[in-house]
Design a protein around this nucleic acid. Structure first.
Length: 320
DNA sequence: AAATTCATCAACCGCAAGTTA
DNA sequence: TTAACTTGCGGTTGATGAATT
C-alpha cells in the first residue's frame, strides 16, 4: 500500500481557500459531481491537491451542510454516541445530518470535553473521574530525593513507603476492575476480552496456585477479585493512614479525610475472607501469567504493576 | 492602548483500508 | 498476487478574533 505524495511535495497551494477557488470547485462539482479527487484539481483548474479539494467540499462547500450552534439534542446525541463508540467522528457525523466529522470533532474538543470534565465526568470513559491527587501526592512523595531521610532511620520508613506504593497500585487496580465489571458497553464480550484462560490466570494469581483450570464466567466476572482487592487495600490504607506522612516542610501529604473524600469508590461486598486474600496476594508471584495470550499487553501491565523493581517507572508513566 | 492569553475552527498531515491495473 | 493509487479518518496545527491583563 503506497502513500500518495503530500500536497507540499507536489508544490501546490496550501492554506485558506479564496472565494475564487471555492467557486471553481463548486462549478466543477456541479457539472461533474464529487469524487475523482486526485484528478479533480487539474480538471477544475485548481492549484490544490485532491485531498484539500475533498476536505474543502465535504467540510465547507457542500450544500447540505448545517451551520450554526449545535442544539441540545445534537449535543446529547454526540455525547451518547461517543460514550459507545469513542472518537469515531465520521460515524457520529453520519447520525447528525448536515454536520461534518470535523465540525463534531472540534465541537467535542472545544466544548463537550470541557463540559464533561467540569461535571466530573471523564470524557474518555464517560464515568465519574477518580481524583488522582492521592496518586500524585504519592508520586511526589516517593520521588522526593530525601524521602527516606525524612523518616526515622530506625523506624519503619521503608515499610510505610512500600505500603503507600502498594496502596496506590491497588487503588488503580480497583478502578480498572470496577470499570470492567460495570461497563455498560453492550457489545463487549468480556469472555473474549480477557479469555477464559485469563480468568483462570487471575483466579490462580489470587488464590496462589499456578494451575490453569477452567472457571465458569460469573455474572460479574471480576466481582470477587475487586472485592478481594478492596479488602486488601482497606487493610493497607489503615496501615498507611495510621501514621503521619510528612513532606520536607512537615506538611501532611496523606490524610484519612483526603483519602476518603477523594476516592469515592462505593463499598463492595466482601465475599472472600480478608486475611486469606491478603496473605495470598502478598505471597503470589505473577510470573506464570502467559505473555502469549491475546491480551498480553493487559497482563504485561499486570506484571509491571506487581513487579516491585519495575513499579517506579510504571507508575511514573501512568502519572505522567 | 498594547501585550498576552485563550478559544475556535479551517486546514493539514500521516496512516490505513479499499480499489485498480 | 502485488504494487501503485485513491479515499477516508482521526489527530494535530496554526491563523484569527475575542477576552483579559
Amino acid at each position: 500500500m503506497g502513500r500518495s505524495p503530500s500536497c507540499a511535495e507536489k508544490g501546490v497551494k496550501k492554506g485558506p481557500w479564496t472565494p475564487e477557488e471555492d467557486q471553481k470547485l463548486i462549478d466543477y462539482i456541479q457539472d461533474h459531481g464529487p469524487g475523482r479527487w486526485q484528478s479533480l484539481p487539474r480538471n477544475a483548474g485548481l492549484n490544490r491537491c485532491g485531498k484539500s479539494c475533498r476536505l474543502r467540499w465535504t467540510n465547507y462547500l457542500r450544500p447540505d451542510i448545517k451551520r450554526g450552534k449545535f442544539s441540545d439534542e445534537e449535543e446529547q446525541v454526540i455525547v451518547n454516541l461517543h460514550s459507545v463508540i469513542g472518537n469515531k467522528w465520521s460515524k457520529i457525523a453520519s447520525k447528525l445530518p448536515g454536520r461534518t466529522d470535523n465540525e463534531i470533532k472540534n465541537f467535542w474538543n472545544t466544548h463537550l470535553r470541557k463540559k464533561l470534565l467540569h461535571d466530573g465526568i471523564d470524557p474518555r470513559t464517560h464515568r465519574p473521574v477518580y481524583d488522582l491527587n492521592l496518586l500524585l501526592n504519592l508520586s511526589q512523595l516517593l520521588s522526593t530525593p530525601n524521602f527516606s531521610n525524612l523518616m526515622n532511620p530506625w523506624g519503619n520508613a521503608l515499610k510505610l513507603q512500600t505500603d503507600a506504593t502498594h496502596l496506590s497500585q491497588i487503588e488503580l487496580l480497583k478502578s480498572i476492575l470496577q470499570f470492567i465489571n460495570t461497563s455498560p458497553l453492550p457489545n463487549i464480550d468480556q469472555t473474549s476480552f480477557l479469555g477464559l484462560q485469563n480468568y483462570a490466570q487471575i483466579d490462580g494469581f489470587l488464590h496462589g496456585t499456578n494451575t490453569l483450570h477452567t472457571v465458569d464466567q460469573p455474572q460479574e466476572p471480576f466481582h470477587g477479585y475487586s472485592t478481594a482487592i478492596t479488602s486488601y487495600s482497606q487493610a493497607l490504607f489503615e496501615r498507611v493512614s495510621s501514621q503521619e506522612v510528612l513532606n520536607a516542610n512537615g506538611n501532611s501529604l496523606i490524610s484519612t479525610g483526603d483519602y476518603q473524600t477523594e476516592c469515592p469508590l462505593p463499598a463492595l461486598v466482601l465475599d472472600t475472607p480478608e486475611s486469606t486474600i491478603v496473605n495470598q496476594m502478598e505471597n503470589t508471584e505473577p510470573a506464570y501469567i502467559s505473555a502469549h495470550s491475546p491480551t498480553s499487553n493487559f497482563f504485561e501491565d499486570w506484571e509491571k504493576l506487581l513487579d516491585g523493581e519495575a513499579s517506579s517507572s510504571f507508575w511514573k508513566d501512568i502519572i505522567d
